[in-house]
Design a binder for these strands. Structure first.
Lengths: 218, 218
DNA sequence: CGCAGAATTGATCAAATGGTCAAGCCGCAT
DNA sequence: ATGCGGCTTGACCATTTGATCAATTCTGCG
């Protein structure tokens, strides 16, 4: 399967029959994302998620047989969104433009989906017990392609020589940091990405520094 | 209290009487770091930590009255190590040298203490329920000083104009990423910082890119 | 309208787990 | 050696919590 294909849409353990079921499933996933991101898999309670979704625990378990099924579903949906900006990284654009755009997109994701970012981060930090197989296939495929894109830019002299993987890690790290460590950043600056000026300041700093760092000449 | 002072040495809920007690407490803290970092606070079981420390659960609870006490102790010890490299950032050095040294130190920490890095990261990602007060005092003090250092470098024309907070965040993000997301990095590259060549490659990439990005001229 | 299947939930269960305790062990100072 | 006080643990308890189920209500369709 090509790396541009979307992830298989979560094993629908149960076939959705009605629009009400669909709406409920969606509400549950939203609630689960919020609670899992705040408390982790083990720390989250099913009845807590149910309450956040506005239904009884028993009803939630009617839609997702187990807590783990629910966790898996939320994670898969999250990873799919997480990958999107990287899919868009365009080999044919000017490297500076493409990378600048990528940074902006990732930072936007950190602003709009900080919970998803944190959930994903926590899963990885715990060794990716659930996502490891997907990372090794879909993510690895996609990253391999983009590594080649970067290599080509370097060969063509349009980018300074940097090991492509490390460049990608730098881009991920700097942009995700604003979502994952928002609590720390809020403590130190009093602001977060939801503040437009702060967002622009962060984007500016990252883009300026990294582009100056990897574009040829000065 | 000055920001250079060490953190208050964990409220010693219990006074240590013998060298055997001291050794046990140390073994427990090591085991707890490992287990908490892998499974999070909620996911870790006390008997699991006790087993990793080579003693009974009841005995562990003799040294730390509650799971949360133990968690707090591990975290405090961790934060203290985490802060050390930043304390060393020297205002009187050449900015390039100082920042290069800082990156190397932080990356070294990611190599030697990946579990501590992940534990700290998970605590922050969950909103720093335990550390928030310490962050707001000790960390904030220290960061404020270093911000002034960076501002002075910029005023003196020895550093390109970058909002100092964002520079600090970039340094933290890029270096910690190798510990916090080691599972992902291992999946994508097959290596981690324990590989000397890979460590050097990462250090090189980060130092080169960021220094070129923030040092004046090109 | 009537009914088949979906949706919903209160009650309940079983397992997991943090913490307690009484009883015994052992290191060490005298 | 001996006894005080810290060290150690098996057994136990109370609570939490994921999951089940029977019973009831709702929904849409023929």
């Amino acid at each position: 399967m090509s790396s541009t294909a979307r992830l298989a849409p979560v094993p629908p353990a149960r076939r959705l029959k009605t629009r009400i079921g669909e709406a409920n499933e969606s509400r549950i996933l939203d609630a689960a994302l919020s609670v899992f991101a705040r408390l982790g898999f083990a720390g989250a309670r099913v009845d807590q998620i149910a309450e956040a979704a506005g239904m009884s625990k028993a009803n939630l378990l009617y839609y997702f047989r187990t807590k783990e099924d629910l966790y898996r579903a939320v994670l898969t949906r999250t990873l799919d969104m997480w990958l999107e900006p990287l899919r868009e990284l365009d080999a044919d654009s000017d490297p500076g433009t493409a990378l600048g755009h990528y940074i902006a997109r990732k930072l936007e994701y950190s602003r709009l989906q900080p919970e998803a970012s944190r959930l994903f981060a926590m899963e990885i930090m715990q060794g990716a017990p659930v996502l490891s197989c997907v990372l090794a296939t879909d993510l690895a495929d996609l990253v391999e392609r983009k590594v080649r894109t970067i290599e080509r830019w370097i060969e063509d002299g349009r980018l300074a020589p940097v090991e492509p993987h490390h460049l990608i890690f730098m881009l991920w790290a700097t942009t995700q940091h604003y979502a994952d460590f928002a609590a720390q950043i809020r403590t130190l600056t009093g602001k977060d990405l939801s503040d437009d000026a702060f967002f622009e300041e962060a984007r500016q700093a990252i883009v300026t520094t990294i582009l100056k760092g990897v574009l040829p000449r000065g």
